[in-house]
């Protein structure tokens, strides 16, 4: 898959992230205290898991998709080839 396509997918993941963040307002099942994990209510731990997942996505994008545009462009060339 080329990098342009990956960046497009990255954009859609960001849009999905926004909808997931807002979903407890619309889906009652996501706006409840149970099930708890280590005593932490569902509304709290679920959004932290979503945020952690998005953090991983950002890390992945920075490692594999976004260009750096440095003069030493070996890495860019490889990213384009991928």
């Amino acid at each position: 898959m080329d990098n342009k396509k990956k960046r497009k997918i990255g954009f859609f993941i960001t849009v999905i992230y926004l909808f997931v963040c807002l979903s407890p307002y619309f889906i009652d099942g996501l706006n409840q205290i149970t099930p708890k994990v280590f005593g932490i209510p569902f509304t709290v731990w679920s959004i932290l898991v979503v945020a952690a997942g998005y953090c991983y996505f950002l890390y992945y994008m920075s490692k594999n998709v976004w260009y750096h545009y440095d003069d030493d462009d070996n890495e860019n060339t490889e990213a384009v080839k991928k």
């Binding site: 950002l58 890390y59 992945y60 994008m61 920075s62 490692k63 976004w66 260009y67 750096h68 890495e75």
Partner: peptide, 9 residues
């Protein structure tokens, strides 16, 4: 550029 990109990640 790598530094800026690393920050974003």
């Amino acid at each position: 550029g790598k530094t800026v990109r690393k920050i974003s990640g």
